[in-house]
Amino acid sequence: MPDTCEFLERRRTGADGESFEHERPYCTAVDAFVQPMRADVCAKRYDLDPESDCEFYRGAKGAGSITGFDGAGTTDSEAGGS
C-alpha cells in the first residue's frame, strides 16, 4: 500500500497556470492544489486515510458513502480556525 494517497502529486505549477516557489500538494482527482489541512489526509499523516477520510478520493473511486447512507452533501465554509 502506498504511503500517500494515489492522487497526491507535488507540483509547483497547477492546471490553471498558477505557480509557487515551493512544491505543494496537488490532488489529481480534482485537479487542484490541496488545502494545507486536507494535505494531512493526502499524506496519510496522523493515521488519516483517504479511503475513509477524503470525499474527493471516495468520489474518484466511486466508493460512495462509508455508512451506506447517502445523506445530503456537506460543505466546508469555515475559512479559518483557532
Binding site: R24, V34, Q35, M37, A79, G80, G81
Partner: peptide, 14 residues
C-alpha cells in the same frame, strides 16, 4: 490579526 492560519494557503489567495 490572524495572519495565516492552517486551513487554506496560497492556493486560495497568493
Amino acid at each position: 490579526a490572524a495572519l495565516t492560519g492552517g486551513v487554506h494557503g496560497k492556493e486560495a489567495n497568493p
